[in-house]
Amino acid sequence: MIKGKRVRILTDLRELEAIRESWENLHSCGLNATVFTSYEWVTTWFKVYSDTVASLFVIVICDSENIYGLLPLYVRKDNLSVGWFIGSGEPEMSETCSEMQDLLLSPLMAVSDLPPLSSIMSLGKIEAIYLSNVALNASLLTWCKLSKSSYIVRYIGRRYRAMTNIDNNALVKKTARIRKAANKQNAIVKRVQNPKELIEVFDVLATLHTQRWSEKGHFPIFDDPLFKQFHQEILVKLLKSKRLSLIYLSVGKNVLAVNYGIISGNDLIFYQNGVDTSFKPNISPGMLLHHEQLELARALGLASYDFMMSSGSVSYKSNISDETEVIASVKIFNNLRQLYFQKMIGYISLIKQLVKKRLGRSHV
């Protein structure tokens, strides 16, 4: 054990509420702090989704006064031996998609000073930890290596960012023509400033998003009651803490697009949008709002406007970004037996996919 420090595993909301001040102090100085490891995000998620999960499993490294490390996990009802990162692993139609999943760590604590991850997993009686969105430079992966943990890393996509320190970057160039067209239409961009406006604009966001995705034949995620409730609640908290950037573009009385962004660490991240594609002439309202968010990030002194991850090999985000990085899913195991079992399942799945593809070609 680290001298003067101990490991706690918190399993209910009351325990989280008791450490709120220490948690928020840690989050304010943590070098890898994101909205997804904030007290607001984690506790709001658990309040909304509590009936669908077995319990919280929040790992805390602390002393009698301060918290030096925190990893917000939970345990699902269908498998009590696995810890999932908060905001991941729900049914696909309800998933809130917490990204950049990592250990929240104090600058006063080195990863090398942390206890072995396997000992914490044994303490909490879980066999594995699953994370669905991890950068390759994450503190958690360093912790796994130093702990000599058994783990699997699988590349799942790329994260894209438009950088604020590049004046005439890709996004600025891409939107130059449509910004002129929007000006001719007297298009106006506004940022939500108060709770009343928030309710109105959120309803438009949900409506536009639902309309567009229904037309494409996909399930509109704002139709899921848990997903919608979570965002109705977290938006109010983000607005109060000045971390919300909910902006909308209108022509006359018509709102053509809404962009839902969140200030997270040193970035402004793009979380969701809704766009009316029927307006003529086409002034690409969704792209216009991406540019507005970039300029807001620049004005706030942030490092980037972050498009987050895309899993496809080709993404429109690649054409308007200046930096990109590989994102992976990570499975951490408490012993080699579980690691080999998971690898075997992966090999079997790969063989099935190859066989299916070959059979499909044979019928062409």
Results as ranks from 00 to 15, higher is better:
Asn169Ser: 14
Leu171Met: 14
Val172Pro: 15
Val172Met: 13
Lys173Ser: 10
Lys173Phe: 03
Lys173Gln: 10
Lys174Gln: 06
Lys174Ala: 14
Thr175Ile: 08
Ala176Glu: 15
Ala176Asp: 15
Arg177Glu: 13
Arg177Leu: 12
Arg179Thr: 05
Arg179Lys: 13
Lys180Cys: 11
Lys184Ala: 07
Gln185Thr: 00
Asn186Gly: 00
Asn186Leu: 07
Ala187Ser: 08
Ile188Arg: 09
Val189Ile: 13
Val189Met: 04
Lys190Phe: 09
Val192Gly: 06
Lys196Gln: 14
Glu197Asn: 08
Glu197Met: 06
Glu200His: 05
Glu200Gly: 12
Val201His: 01
Val201Tyr: 03
Asp203Leu: 10
Asp203Pro: 07
Ala206Tyr: 04
Ala206Ile: 10
Thr207Phe: 12
Leu208Lys: 09
Leu208Gly: 04
His209Ile: 05
His209Asn: 13
His209Met: 05
Thr210Tyr: 09
Arg212Leu: 05
Trp213Pro: 07
Trp213Ser: 01
Trp213Thr: 00
Ser214Thr: 15
Ser214Lys: 15
Glu215Gly: 15
Lys216Ile: 11
His218Pro: 04
Phe219Asn: 08
Ile221Gln: 13
Ile221Arg: 10
Ile221Pro: 04
Phe222Ser: 07
Phe222Gln: 02
Phe222Asp: 09
Phe222Gly: 10
Asp223Ile: 11
Asp223Val: 06
Asp224Gly: 09
Asp224Phe: 11
Pro225Met: 03
Leu226Ala: 05
Leu226Phe: 11
Phe227Pro: 00
Phe227Ala: 03
Gln229Asp: 14
Gln229Met: 08
Phe230Met: 04
Phe230Trp: 01
His231Lys: 02
His231Glu: 01
Gln232Thr: 14
Gln232Ser: 15
Leu235Ser: 12
Leu235Gln: 10
Val236Asp: 06
Lys237Ala: 02
Lys237Ile: 05
Leu239Gly: 01
Leu239Val: 03
Lys240Trp: 05
Lys240Leu: 08
Arg243Trp: 09
Arg243Val: 01
Leu244Thr: 00
Ser245Gly: 06
Ser245Asn: 11
Ser245Tyr: 09
Leu246Thr: 02
Leu246Phe: 05
Tyr248Arg: 05
Tyr248His: 06
Ser250Met: 07
Val251Phe: 06
Val251Pro: 01
Gly252Gln: 04
Lys253Tyr: 08
Val255Met: 09
Leu256Glu: 10
Leu256Val: 00
Ala257Cys: 03
Tyr260His: 11
Tyr260Ala: 07
Tyr260Trp: 12
Gly261Gln: 08
Ile262Thr: 02
Ile263Leu: 12
Ile263Met: 09
Gly265Leu: 02
Asn266Thr: 10
Asp267Glu: 15
Asp267Val: 15
Asp267Phe: 15
Leu268His: 01
Ile269Cys: 14
Ile269Met: 11
Phe270Cys: 14
Phe270Gly: 12
Phe270Ala: 11
Gln272Glu: 13
Gln272Ser: 15
Gln272Trp: 12
Asn273Asp: 12
Gly274Asp: 00
Asp276Thr: 03
Asp276Ser: 02
Asp276Tyr: 01
Thr277Cys: 10
